[in-house]
Design a protein around this nucleic acid. Sequence first.
DNA 1: CGGGATCCTTTCGGATACTG
DNA 2: CAGTATCCGAAAGGATCCCG
Lengths: 136, 136
Amino acid sequence: MDSKIFNLKSKLEVYKAMTGGGNFGDCPVRDVIQGINGKWSSLLVMALAERPYRFGELRRLVPDISQRMLTQTLYDLQRDGYVHREVFPTKPPSVEYSLTDLGRSMFAPLQLLIQWAELNHDAVREARAAFDNAQA
Amino acid sequence: MDSKIFNLKSKLEVYKAMTGGGNFGDCPVRDVIQGINGKWSSLLVMALAERPYRFGELRRLVPDISQRMLTQTLYDLQRDGYVHREVFPTKPPSVEYSLTDLGRSMFAPLQLLIQWAELNHDAVREARAAFDNAQA
DNA sequence: CGGGATCCTTTCGGATACTG
DNA sequence: CAGTATCCGAAAGGATCCCG
């Protein structure tokens, strides 16, 4: 795990990072965050962090993803440099997906966010219920 | 910062957290992650982490958000318990938005992801360029 | 087996106009 | 000032069929 990641910045500095220092329309941080914001991106990264998987394996591993979105999400992850795609010329062909170094570097910060979600999802559910109740 | 957050789990455990242990369709972790996955959610959380802001202040702070999305995103954040909304009965009325304890607890893990994005956005840009170049 | 192509529905998000 | 209401285009995402 890269120790640089844990050098916390001031709140103002972090906010400025998300605004691109004034370049709101073209902020690199928001650009990268958007790339992993899809419905399936982070899930597939976490799956591939365990070990490489083939296309069909991923389909069975995540039964509620459509084949279209699996293809497209893997393509996007590959384009952004998080995932490596290797074709084995067997018959029928098999394709293996694995994380790149860049993809692996995402694991630590993403895991912390996921654990935060796991730790607080009860609170969120209660907040929603209370809010919806107060509206009625 | 909650130290429990930094008790790292095994990769398999983390993946299982994202699948809800088999309840793919209704996984609480993915539910929470989805809630902060919007285009503006994390940006507003990071802004409010610095200090409370009024509606108009937020508009000026983030010039490229539409008033519709600012209203809606703040509403959603409030519903999920991340943001507190307080109306002051002045004339004309003023409304202040601030983070709740739950919202503040999101700051640390979110900041790490943002710093990761800041650290790696050059690599992502290069990967995209190389990929697009190889396609042509 | 690992997709591509197509069609369709739903959701996201911007623009504009109006209000207490 | 802090919103609501409405309309619309763009994008995300699912279902289905097809192919080497």
